[in-house]
Simulated assay, not measured.
Amino acid sequence: MTNVGSQITDGCFSIVGNFDFGRASTGSDSGNLIVYFAGKAESSVDGRDEGIKAKASMDLNSVAIYRVVDGKYRLSDGVNTVPSF
Rank of each mutant, 00 (worst) to 15 (best):
T2I: 11
N3K: 15
N3W: 13
G5Y: 11
S6I: 00
I8P: 01
I8K: 06
T9E: 04
D10H: 10
F13V: 04
S14Y: 10
I15H: 03
V16F: 13
N18F: 14
F21R: 04
G22I: 03
R23Y: 06
S25I: 08
T26I: 06
T26H: 10
G27D: 02
D29G: 01
D29W: 08
S30A: 11
G31W: 09
I34R: 05
Y36L: 05
A38G: 04
A38Q: 15
A38N: 15
A41T: 04
S44C: 03
V45E: 11
G47V: 01
D49L: 13
E50L: 13
G51S: 00
I52N: 06
K53Y: 09
A54D: 09
K55C: 08
A56L: 13
A56R: 08
S57P: 05
S57L: 05
D59R: 11
D59A: 09
D59H: 05
L60R: 04
N61K: 15
S62N: 08
V63L: 10
V63W: 07
R67H: 13
V69S: 09
V69W: 07
D70P: 02
K72N: 11
K72S: 10
K72T: 07
K72F: 09
K72A: 12
R74P: 00
R74T: 12
L75N: 02
L75R: 03
L75D: 03
S76C: 12
G78K: 06
V79F: 15
N80I: 10
N80C: 12
P83R: 02
S84Q: 15
S84K: 15
F85E: 10
F85L: 14
